[in-house]
Computed example of a mutant assay.
Amino acid sequence: MKIYGLKTCDTCRKVLKQLPDSTFSDIRGDGMPDGLLEAAYAAFGAKLVNTRSTTWRGLSEEERAGEPLDLLRAHPALMKRPLIERNGELFLGWDQNVRAALGAA
């Protein structure tokens, strides 16, 4: 299982504690594997962009109107976190549905 997020994100740290056998990739430093961002956007659409983040609030209206994938590439912190990949299946966030699906009640 691979977790994509930010090493400074409290939720990502919580996930790492609950899924200790997973590997973590900091999207700000390591980037995302080819095709993963596109696959995540295809699966989650606009939910992939965290419009409640400080980064989002700092963007101009013109920047916010840009293509979501371009925004996420330019500002990795805009991605809702964590993005979890398990055997080709993607999960977004850390709500009770995701925890249950991953066996981390």
Score class of each variant (00 low, 15 high):
Gly66Lys: 11
Val49Met: 02
His75Tyr: 15
Leu36Ile: 09
Met1Ser: 06
Lys14Gln: 14
Leu69Cys: 08
Thr23Ala: 12
Gly88Phe: 13
Leu69Tyr: 05
Arg13Ile: 05
Phe24Glu: 07
Pro68Ser: 05
Tyr41Lys: 00
Ser53Trp: 06
Lys7Gly: 14
Thr11Ala: 08
Ile27Val: 14
Leu69Ser: 03
Pro68Met: 06
Leu78Lys: 02
Ile27His: 05
Pro82Trp: 04
Leu83Met: 09
Ser60Thr: 15
His75Ser: 10
Met32Val: 15
Ser25Cys: 13
Gly35Asn: 04
Gly58Val: 13
Ala65Gln: 10
Glu63Ala: 14
Thr54Leu: 09
Gln96Thr: 15
Lys47Phe: 00
Gly35Tyr: 09
Asn87Gly: 15
Leu16Asp: 09
Arg99Glu: 15
Ala77Tyr: 03
Lys2Arg: 11
Gly93Leu: 05
Leu72Cys: 04
Met1Phe: 10
Phe44Ile: 03
Glu89Arg: 13
Pro20Lys: 00
Asp95Gln: 03
Leu72Ile: 09
Arg57Gly: 13
Ala65Thr: 10
Phe24Ile: 11
Gly93Tyr: 01
Leu6Tyr: 09
Leu19Cys: 12
Leu19His: 06
Leu83Gln: 03
Ser60Pro: 12
Thr51Cys: 03
Asn97Trp: 05
Thr55Ile: 11
Gln18Ile: 08
Leu90Lys: 04
Met1Glu: 05
Leu90Met: 12
Ile27Trp: 05
Ala101Glu: 10
Gly58Lys: 12
Ala39Cys: 07
Glu62Tyr: 06
Arg86Glu: 14
Leu102Asn: 05
Leu92Asp: 02
Val98Pro: 00
Arg81Val: 01
Arg52Ala: 09
Phe24Ala: 07
Pro33Asn: 10
Arg81Gln: 06
Leu36Pro: 01
Val98Ile: 08
Ala100Ile: 08
Lys47Ser: 11
Leu71Arg: 00
Ala42Asn: 04
Arg57Trp: 09
Gln96Asp: 14
Tyr4Leu: 00
Leu90Ser: 07
Cys9Glu: 05
Arg86Asn: 09
Cys9His: 07
Thr11Gln: 07
